[in-house]
Simulated scan of single mutants.
Amino acid sequence: MKVLLIGGTGTISSAAVKLALSRGAEVALLTRGTHPELVPDGAECIRADIADEEKVRKLLSGRAFDAVADFTVMTPEQAARDVSLFTGNTGQFIFISSASAYQKPPVRYPITESTPLRNPFWSYSRNKIACEELFTAAYRSEGFPVTIIRPSHTYSERSVPLAVHGENGSWQVLQRILSGKPVIVHGDGLTLWTFTHADDFAKGFCGLLGNPHAIGEAVHITSDESITWNDAYEAIGAALGVKPNLVHIPSDFLAAFDPELLGKLLGDKAYCGVFDNSKLKRLVPGFQAEIRFSDGVRRSVEYLRSHPELQTPDPEFDAWCDRVVAAHFAGMKDLGNG
């Protein structure tokens, strides 16, 4: 099977590339080349920016693929570009959407692929919905062979999954845990959430790759394990050998201090994320997510601690946390004196 992956060096795509290669696929990566160290042996590297449509069209001229997957599409304009680029030269096109596109707030659980798509809180999710609509319309009108995949909070050895962190990633939160400083958990920490390790995602992805029964379908790939946010942070602390000092702060209070969190929390992580994976298991018989969060996050913590180049300090985020926690406790004190 000849496969083209656009991106291919990110959190979820790297694992997918490795598994596809191990299963005998001929894999080509269309990448800007910013992380050549993440391109695995055996994969062809086509260096180009997918945004340069003319150059990409020339580079791919005369080539056909059994499947193309684009991990980089974020807007309807980019989706329309891909329909133009790949109509007629692939047997399947996989669009990586997001489980955050599902209705917020949700009205019932578990979430299935038929759950309505609506997210008034997060422009990222609304753009993904618009992309899905464009690809689906191309499938219905022109037979564009799209498969839509909706991941939910997928992580790998290179990333510790968190709800609230700064622009430099998770390291500063780990430092706060290690030093005993307050660590912010949104809400009461009791909502259920689903974390999916990239290696488990890859098994679902590769099972859908080149799968004719997946054409025209939308499928989420998630773990079957759901845990509370409190348990997630406790597992991170256990991996560090420290009990974290958790401080619970309402999501809308956090968003008042950082409007970017409005989408990421109220548009996603503030609600339970529990998924029905029966559709995936019908399309990919034998699929089973095997990596429990406690084991997966231990791998992530060990990897970060052994790779100093990934230990990026974030003093701005650290100071922000201190301000938010101070304001939270000040408000509680005022209420107590009222």
Results as ranks from 00 to 15, higher is better:
G210P: 07
F121D: 10
L335K: 13
V164S: 08
A20G: 10
P120I: 02
R81F: 02
S170T: 10
V3F: 10
Y303S: 11
R126C: 05
D52W: 07
H328T: 12
R140T: 00
E77D: 15
L261D: 10
L4R: 02
S125G: 04
G166L: 11
V56H: 08
T9K: 00
R118N: 15
H153V: 14
K181F: 09
F86G: 05
A28G: 03
V3W: 08
E225V: 04
G62N: 06
V325M: 10
G286M: 05
E290V: 09
F293D: 05
L117V: 09
I236F: 04
R32M: 12
G189F: 08
E309N: 09
A64K: 14
K181S: 12
N127L: 07
S84T: 14
E302W: 04
G336N: 15
A289W: 05
D70A: 04
F329H: 15
R292F: 13
A255H: 00
G42L: 06
G241W: 07
A79W: 01
A80T: 09
A232Y: 03
E53K: 15
A326V: 04
E316V: 14
A330L: 15
F93M: 06
I6H: 04
S125F: 05
R63Y: 06
F205C: 03
D41C: 14
N277R: 03
G286H: 00
S251Y: 11
L335C: 09
G24L: 10
H186W: 08
T136R: 03
S159W: 15
V284R: 00
G216R: 01
L304G: 04
E77H: 05
N127D: 14
E260I: 08
D188H: 06
Q311S: 06
Q288S: 13
V73R: 01
N168V: 08
R298M: 11
E234P: 01
L60A: 10
S123H: 12
A330T: 15
L262I: 11
I96S: 12
I249L: 09
S300K: 00
G10S: 02
A239D: 10
G216F: 01
V56T: 09
T87P: 00
H220G: 01
V325L: 14
K333C: 13
L283R: 02
P212A: 11
C131R: 00
I6M: 13
T72C: 07
S152A: 15
S141P: 04
P145G: 03
S125N: 05
L283Q: 01
Y303H: 14
L178F: 04
P76T: 03
K264Q: 15
G169Q: 12
R158T: 11
R176N: 04
D200V: 00
A235C: 07
S278K: 08
R282D: 13
A130N: 03
H213R: 13
V83A: 09
P313K: 03
F293M: 06
A235D: 07
S13W: 00
F86E: 08
K279H: 05
S170L: 09
A48Q: 14
W171A: 06
F201T: 02
